[in-house]
Design a protein around this nucleic acid. Structure first.
Length: 138
DNA sequence: GCCAACGTTGGC
DNA sequence: GCCAACGTTGGC
């Protein structure tokens, strides 16, 4: 089991929309960054991911699960290498974890989301996952 | 193959 | 709205 964080601008695709999509999930499309693509290709069915709202909110709002491993991104131009995975909403975080709270926690100083703020699909370690869940009220 | 210019992302 | 980080592009 591996852990990830997936970023979305709520204007484009919000946690509420993800939840409304239900248990069969939706394709996580539109990733156009090779590092993020490589991370998605490592995702396995059943892996968990934090759902993070960038720009608006700037907080982790929920937990999602990978329901289908990587396959070609239908929104990409033919002949390009981009892939997507399918994700579904699992549960809300009782207390959303803000970026400020992550930055204020010394144990999370090295978390990929801070070090590489522009990476849209960073990995999360098991320890970081546990701590972030705790901070989120789980 | 290097590097400057430029575009995009995301926090503030 | 601005700026820093960083990926990509294009000239040499």
């Amino acid at each position: 089991m591996q852990y990830w964080l997936i970023k979305s601008e709520p204007d484009a695709w919000s946690w509420d929309e993800q939840k409304a999509a239900g248990a069969k999930g939706t394709e996580w499309t539109g990733i156009r960054n090779h590092t993020a693509k490589l991370n998605m290709m490592k995702m396995k069915k059943g892996d968990r991911a934090f759902f993070y709202h960038s720009n608006i909110g700037k907080e982790i709002v929920g937990i999602a699960e990978i329901v289908k491993e990587h396959h070609p991104d239908p929104t990409a131009e033919p002949g390009t290498p981009w892939v997507c995975v399918d994700v579904k909403a699992v549960q809300d975080l009782p207390r959303p974890v803000s970026l400020a709270a992550i930055k204020a926690e010394p144990k999370l100083a090295d978390v990929a989301i801070i070090k590489q703020s522009r990476l849209s699909v960073p990995p999360i370690t098991a320890e970081e996952w546990k701590l972030l869940c705790k901070m989120g009220g789980l």
